[in-house]
Design a protein around this nucleic acid. Structure first.
Lengths: 301, 301
DNA sequence: TAACATTATTGCCTTTATGACAATAATTAT
DNA sequence: ATAATTATTGTCATAAAGGCAATAATGTTA
């Protein structure tokens, strides 16, 4: 039995939920898949799929096996790519997933130059603040605020992700500039949406954390929109420093300074990380992008 | 090409540093390994091994590929092992769907012991009198009053499901004890709800079925509630014997005896069945539960 | 409720790929 | 230089997978 082939067949049947659909993808008759999957089940001594003529679904073991297979098949594919592209020019499709804010303000502006350096790399950039899995079949490089999900993934600290309170001069003129952090509670606030609610304004006083959030005026997962509202004088916002430097320099926003430092999480050392799978650094396109991004971003910020 | 086989061959050659040694481990001629490795190299478009008649060494890519392969082959082995262990001992999630009455009075009290015997089985019990299809629904074991014959489903008769008329002594004292089945028509009745209306009181007299139902006082799909109303003296009820033995023993309810036997369907041989899917490869968790329930329930009732 | 259409499976045959064995070529140690 | 070990190649036999048609089962639709 060609075990790997059987595994690929099974995996696709599980994914599509149909022998026919999976068969058409492999361009072989469904009967082949049926036999190969049966072989595999015999080999493992377990029923992986519950078949009825209309629906095919995974058994419990099938589910377990499938989730492990996905990982395995991916690794096989990737190691093949590593070998095939070894010592070749950086080329092919490169998928980058980035946080929206970072992507818009920092990543995108750099990619023009990158494409100039490596014209044979086809970029596929997606911006999202969702966590990407990095290791399934989706992304070569991810840029996120959090740290590495598992030991196969390497995380490089790209730059600080310090959050600072900002507001428009117009807002401060109207509402008054808060003199200390406690006064913030009486101000209007613009907040990022996080899975655990609007990200609060936190302040550590003598080892004790205090929530000094002001009244909620707007909540969004879109930093640009929040920043625009801040510029329009609708409230105070905790924004990443790198995201608002241009506004500060132009005078549209103003950094608020207090005796205490404000944060948005109890982790006081936030940073932006570049994540990739360790072994994929050997693939030229990945190495090129990692090296490029690290050099450019760490150099500037 | 059987890629996985080629990968195994290559890996072993790399490990032993010899085609001959590796071949003897797989019990195939060295020529096979030579061809398979060559296939693999062709497939990857890279030379993995430097062969000389005396020594076989890894190339640089070969080394990289080999180290990744070790990981992959290991994971494949491990995932097979996972499946095998799942097939070897009772473990994983076990979903049981039972009729409400049986579940409350008989099944639930047994499950504590079961969990003690098989701590690696995670129970998921749902009680419902709906028909579950066992296959379309995600259920491993179903317990029902009847079953539709089906090739893929195995049914085991767990115990009788005889329905008997019962009433509280208080009710009988007030309303009089019916002397024969025909008198039932002038009594108050508590009825199960079924898809085809309240389940009637039926009696077979000389091969002819007669409906001897009394006036409807209450209808419910909840046997416990009906039984409580019966205990409170609100009427006569046709209840499963196993569901009311405790009431009869305590004297709260009394079984009514007639010259004719009463039924609630024209099927005079009602029983509780345990249903589970026939699988080509036996699933230990299901077998453990089936054996346990059959032994415990058939032993006691 | 009954007919229909879809889908997985099974049987039979063809094609492809792998194993077996012998012969050859190449390299290293003696 | 010779011998011996070892990888490779050629040829054939065998095993495995694909192709196609027919069947059985199941969900859908009128």
């Amino acid at each position: 039995m060609d075990q790997l082939r059987a595994m690929r067949y099974f995996s696709k049947v599980a994914e599509t939920g149909s022998f026919t659909k999976a068969a058409s993808i492999f361009a072989v008759p469904p009967s082949s898949l049926s036999r190969r999957v049966a072989d595999l089940e015999k080999h493992l001594g377990a029923t992986l799929l519950i078949r009825s003529t209309r629906v095919v679904k995974l058994t419990e073991v099938g589910q377990i096996y499938y989730s492990q297979l996905e990982d395995i098949l991916n690794q096989i594919e990737q190691s093949s790519e590593t070998v095939r592209s070894y010592q070749a020019k950086p080329m092919g499709q490169l998928r980058i997933s980035s946080m929206v804010g970072f992507g818009e303000r920092i990543l995108m502006p750099l990619l023009g130059e990158f494409s100039g350096l490596y014209p044979e790399i086809i970029l596929d950039v997606s911006l999202s603040d969702e966590l990407s899995t990095l290791g399934r079949d989706d992304v070569d490089i991810a840029i996120r605020g959090g740290y590495a999900p598992n030991e196969r993934v390497l995380a490089i600290r790209l730059m600080d992700n310090e959050f600072i309170p900002v507001a428009a001069p117009k807002y401060l003129a109207e509402m008054g500039t808060p003199k200390n952090v406690m006064e913030l509670r009486h101000h209007k606030g613009l907040y990022f949406r996080t899975p655990s609610g609007p990200s609060p304004w936190l302040c550590n006083i003598d080892g004790q954390w205090h929530d000094v959030s002001g009244t909620i005026v707007a909540v969004s997962n879109n930093g640009r929109w929040l920043a625009e509202k801040a510029v329009a004088g609708q409230g105070i916002m905790m924004a990443a420093r790198w995201a608002v430097t241009s506004y500060i320099e132009s005078g549209e926003l103003e950094e608020l300074l207090f005796d205490r430092v404000l944060h948005i999480t109890q982790n006081t050392d936030l940073a932006v990380y570049l994540l990739y799978q360790k072994q994929r650094y050997l693939v030229p396109k990945v190495k090129a992008a990692v090296d490029f991004l690290v050099a450019r971003v760490q150099g500037k910020h």
